[in-house]
Simulated assay, not measured.
Amino acid sequence: MTEQPVGPYGPLIAMPELTPDALRAAVAKIAPSRIPALIQHLFEATTNAQATSSLAPLRAFVHSWAVFVAIERHPERAARLRELERIVDEGQQDPTEAIAEIRAIRETAETEAGL
């Protein structure tokens, strides 16, 4: 994991290395209920990588879960993302601002993850 301040005002955990094992360990700490989805995604990515002789499915797996960890390790950011997604899903408000903020959260997470 990369060195970053961890504590009551920082992220719950440091950003892990971008490997399946490190991402799985991070998800186990911050969102253990998501482990089955991670394992299923990894299985599918591995199967697709073998079938296509391409690393692209594994790269997509790492990207997806690295962004997830980068977001979820900050509880306030994760809660805000869920609220924004709820606003978009309900369709009762103009989603333009919510979509822009979702995009900004994901871009920040990608940067933190080193993607």
Rank of each mutant, 00 (worst) to 15 (best):
T2F: 08
T2C: 09
P5M: 04
G7A: 09
G7C: 03
Y9T: 15
G10Q: 11
G10F: 13
I13W: 01
I13C: 01
A14D: 10
M15I: 09
P16I: 03
T19F: 04
P20C: 12
A22R: 02
A22G: 01
L23R: 03
R24P: 05
R24T: 06
R24E: 12
A25G: 06
A25P: 05
A26G: 00
A26T: 01
A26K: 05
A26Y: 06
A26Q: 04
K29D: 03
I30S: 02
A31M: 08
S33Q: 14
S33I: 01
S33V: 03
I35Q: 06
P36F: 06
A37V: 04
A37C: 06
I39R: 11
I39G: 01
Q40F: 10
Q40L: 11
H41S: 15
F43P: 00
F43Y: 08
E44S: 08
A45P: 10
T46H: 09
N48A: 15
A49S: 15
Q50I: 15
T52Q: 14
S53P: 03
P57R: 02
P57V: 08
L58S: 01
R59P: 00
A60H: 08
F61Q: 02
H63M: 14
S64K: 11
S64Y: 08
W65Q: 02
V67H: 06
V67F: 00
V67I: 14
F68V: 02
V69L: 01
A70W: 01
I71N: 02
I71M: 03
R73Q: 09
H74I: 10
H74Y: 12
H74N: 13
E76I: 10
R77I: 15
R77F: 00
A79I: 09
R80W: 05
R80F: 05
L81I: 05
R82H: 13
R82C: 10
R82E: 14
R82F: 09
E83K: 13
E83R: 12
L84E: 02
E85I: 12
E85Y: 08
R86S: 15
R86P: 13
V88F: 11
E90S: 08
E90Q: 09
Q92H: 10
Q93C: 05
P95M: 09
P95W: 07
T96M: 11
E97G: 07
A98G: 08
I99M: 12
A100Q: 11
I102Y: 04
R103C: 07
R103W: 04
R103D: 07
A104S: 15
A104L: 12
I105E: 09
R106L: 11
E107V: 08
A113I: 08
A113T: 13
